[in-house]
Design a protein around this nucleic acid. Structure first.
Lengths: 155, 155
DNA sequence: CTAGAACTTGAAGTTAACTTTAAGTCAAGG
DNA sequence: CCTTGACTTAAAGTTAACTTCAAGTTCTAG
């Protein structure tokens, strides 16, 4: 089974123009063409496309992804390089996860903040509350929000 | 203690031009000016800036953030709206977290894939391995990578 | 009082990742 | 054979979020 660019785009849930753009940027050198020049995506190309999609979600640029594709096409000589690349990406993702966790704590705090404000009818309630009255799990983030990053708050 | 735009930028670890841009976009209506027109950031403005930073990390656009700032300046009438906004953002973050988790699984799989390839000296080793030989925790993601999204693989 | 660093603004420039347009080509059904 | 819809390319346009530039102003230290 082979697919045209439009069919593959539909299958993956992206725009056909995106796949053409990726091709132009050298991300799809493995896609073959018909005698008339039309792209023929093979079933096995789906894996390439899924990996590209995941690398994009991991925050990698088109340029970085092309490097990976080029390495992969070079064959077994680049296994070490590719392994190193994914190991580095693992670290990047861990970092992203920690940041996301932190952002979530802030949003949780803000939800509590506005729930408290709603009950009292004014933001003065949470805003002027003593730290000791604030639920324990929000104390750290509250302190953090009120000071510049990297500013130690311990006296 | 008040800060100029350059001092505040340094404190927060961003470019001064970024703060000026945010101001131009209406994100910093609370920042006062000296008689000569120079921005004077107050200690308490740090909290606003931290919240803006967190909202950005959560993937919100400048425009969305401005809406929040405008609501906050309107006072207690918009508490409900602001609460709804952060609740929605909570959902968005949960979704992001799930995606990041999934991306991580893919990268973990790829690390295993290239470690196995490295040992064997060829990517054929992991590529052509039977599903049963693949470590259990990578089977699902391997299947997923090899098929289009939403394609059920259970026969 | 003045030099110079840091501030001000508006406008233009940058970058990444697409998307759209225009002009033309291919392929399948009738 | 011919229509029609999907394909092709190159080139231009879009968008968000900044960054840089140019010309002028303010503040601080000597």
């Amino acid at each position: 089974m082979v697919y045209t660019v439009g069919e593959m785009a539909k299958l993956l849930g992206v725009a056909a123009s995106t796949l053409r753009y990726y091709d132009k940027e050298g991300l799809l050198p493995f896609v073959e063409r018909s005698s008339g020049g039309i792209r023929m995506f093979r079933e096995s190309d789906i894996e390439w496309l899924q990996v590209i999609g995941c690398m994009k979600k991991a925050g990698m640029s088109i340029k970085d992804i092309r490097q990976y594709i080029e390495m992969a096409l070079q064959g077994d000589d680049t296994i070490d390089l590719r392994l190193a690349m994914f190991r580095r990406q693992q670290e990047v993702l861990k970092q992203q996860m920690a940041e996301l966790q932190h952002t979530m704590e802030m949003v949780d705090y803000k939800c509590w903040y506005y729930e408290t404000a709603k009950e009292a009818g004014t933001v003065d309630a949470p805003q002027k509350m003593e730290l000791a009255e604030v639920p324990e799990r929000f104390r750290k983030i509250r302190q953090e929000l009120r000071t510049a990053p990297g500013t130690a708050t311990t006296i």
